[in-house]
Design a protein around this nucleic acid. Structure first.
Length: 553
RNA sequence: UGGGCCGUCGCCAAGCGGUUAAGGCACCGGGUUUUGAUCCCGGCAUUCGGAGGUUCGAAUCCUCCCGGCCCAGCCA
């Protein structure tokens, strides 16, 4: 049951670091950072980056900072900052230092002044449209701005006045003076600063100009003495600019930017815009809906940090645009929960079973192992009585081939209890089965039945001793492998992604479960007591994932 | 016919000039089992996008070709 940990497979980033260490680059230090913009909730794609950055630091005895890339005050707020911190902590990672790009606004300004003094930056007073037109196209070079040769004195004066708030949004920008004919569009005199007369969560109204990502990120990395700045593939084209800024300025370090492929998960959407759409159009019940790929949603679904780390280790780090199958993620959570969660019995969609050859007030207390392979989980009492509930799926009047459950006239084992035989099927006016009358074989408690084989085993809950509960059964949110490519989100949605059962019966022990405690409901899957809605008076469980099923389908 | 990047089993992914081309997921058998779960055992790439070339030797080096991804925010 305890399988050895998967060997840590190498990847190109670990190889680079191994080489750096061998060459004693950075004095043998490894410092990384996880740099989210606080403009939304973190999702499983970020988990890949978090595990990479914090994981690399841990594996090499280094450190990892959490840095909020808060350079665009119009999109960012503190709610996201708090949520991101909570998510990273829940994943189990500890940042060395908590930083904000806004911590460096003064230094960043001074560096910009230096660039101007070197003749490497200038104030452009063109409109946004003019700048765009002059940038050229993918196949045509750009043309220099009429402000390209402004004097250093005038640039200094204008930039100081931009900072002082003398101009309105859009009147001027500060641009790097690089190469308007570069094949790499990022090098065609990129914008360094823009005027934004808006309140910033942390710096208030101190600034009326804000630095751009490309200018800020490399300098923040350098000031934090980051050794390896890991980011996703779309920033490959930005690396020459990252290096240009650090080469032009005297900084404490010149970190190495390395790019890796972002996560793509089948049947899932990870674009921030579309995630927002799901929430705003109420296709889900909020950012922490258990069907959401957000960390907070995945958490509420019942996933564990260990399963997510395992997932990241299994999918690896490369530059390939890979699509990961859901089965990989599901295997990770099943493995983790199989080993760590106690077993219980729960009936989601109940049918009443009356054991007719038992007295009306008959009860018997049975002892069940909490885990079939691990005695350390201990045992619990389960009450058996004359009337028990079984799941509707476990009875069939017209069974498919190889059906091993209860059928009219057939026998089945009630898990941990007796073998029963179905003698009578009671239906309502509509023809639905509402009750089964069975007899039990008293000689089968803890023993195989005499003279015959009973293969089926089904779970059950005593009607009198069990407690009512609500169970939310979740399935994938989308029906198509790549929902982002669908004509519309609506068209891709799985209409049956959430089914709520309110008349469930669970073992009485389950009512006392703490929120977020996880169980295997035997033969069904893994379930978690809802983080917010579960309580003793109203037990609520979410289905995390089903058990592997090699029979169905 | 602008620049950057990627192609190893159905899906991931090691491999870095000499290995029988790791491993995981999935799948297919078989065994154990009072969860159709778990666990165990076995199977699953004569071949590395294609074609040439270099070499005693190529998935690994070179050339060309084919396929895919990213970039024209005063977003990150």
């Amino acid at each position: 049951m305890n399988k050895p940990d998967l060997p840590v497979t190498s990847n190109f980033i670990r190889n680079i670091i191994d080489d750096d260490l061998a060459a004693n680059k950075n004095d043998g230090r490894v410092v990384t950072r996880f740099p989210p913009e606080p403009n939304g909730y973190l999702h499983i794609g970020h988990v890949k980056s978090i595990c990479l950055n914090f994981g690399i630091a841990a594996q090499y005895g280094g450190t990892c900072n959490l840095r909020f890339d808060d350079t665009n005050p119009v999109k960012e707020n503190d709610e996201y900052v708090q949520a991101i911190k909570a998510d990273v902590e829940w994943l189990g990672f500890k940042w060395d230092e908590l930083r904000h790009a806004s911590d460096y606004f003064d230094e960043l300004y001074d560096f910009a002044v230096q660039l101007i003094k070197k003749g490497k930056a200038y104030v452009d007073s063109s409109s946004a449209e003019e700048v765009r037109a002059m940038r050229g196209s993918l196949t045509e070079p750009g043309t220099p701005s009429p402000y390209h040769n402004r004097s250093i004195e005038e640039n200094l004066d204008l930039f100081a006045r931009m900072k002082a708030g003398e101009f309105e949004d859009g009147e001027h920008i500060l641009r790097a003076k690089i190469d308007m004919a570069s094949g790499n569009i990022n090098m065609r005199d990129p914008t360094l600063y823009r005027i934004r007369k808006v309140h910033h969560v942390r710096t208030g109204n101190d600034w009326s100009i804000y630095p751009m990502y490309d200018y800020t990120h490399c300098l923040s990395d350098a000031m934090e003495n980051i050794t390896h700045s890991l980011c996703t593939l779309e920033f490959e084209d930005h690396r020459p600019l990252y290096d240009w800024v650090l080469d032009e300025l005297e900084t404490p370090a010149h970190p190495q930017q390395i790019e890796f492929a972002r996560l793509a998960l089948e049947y899932t959407i990870l674009s921030k815009r579309k995630l927002i759409q799901l929430v705003e159009e109420k296709h889900v019940d909020g950012w922490d809906d258990p069907r959401m790929p957000t960390i907070t949603g995945i958490r509420r679904r019942g996933y564990t940090p260990a399963a997510l780390s395992d997932f990241c280790e299994r999918i690896g780090i490369t530059k390939n645009d890979a699509w990961i199958e859901m089965a990989v993620l599901e295997t990770c959570i099943r493995d983790n929960l199989n080993e760590h969660s106690p077993r219980r019995m729960a009936v989601i969609d109940p049918i009443k079973v009356v054991i007719t050859d038992l007295d009306d007030d008959y009860t018997e207390t049975l002892s069940f192992a909490n885990h079939p392979q691990n005695e350390a989980f201990g045992r619990r009492d389960v009450v058996f009585s004359k009337v028990v509930m079984i799941d509707r799926d476990d009875f069939s009047e017209n069974p498919p081939p190889k059906y091993q459950r209860l059928v009219p006239g057939g026998e089945v084992r009630l898990r941990g209890s007796y073998v029963i035989k179905c003698n009578e099927v009671i239906k309502n006016e509509a023809g639905d089965v509402v009750e089964l009358h069975c007899t039990h074989d008293a000689a089968t408690l803890g023993k195989k039945p005499e003279g015959r084989k009973v293969k089926g085993v089904i779970h059950w809950v005593s009607m009198s001793a069990g407690v009512k509960a609500e169970v939310r059964v979740y399935d994938r949110l989308f029906n198509v492998v790549n929902p982002a490519a669908a004509e519309s989100l609506e068209a891709a949605l799985n209409p049956d992604s959430k089914t709520v059962y309110t008349q469930c019966y669970v073992e009485s022990a389950l009512a006392d479960a703490e929120p977020e405690s996880r169980f295997q409901f035997e033969r069904l899957g893994y379930y978690v007591a809802d983080r917010y809605d579960h309580n003793k008076a109203h037990p609520v469980f979410n289905r995390t994932v089903t058990l592997r099923d090699t029979w169905a389908k």
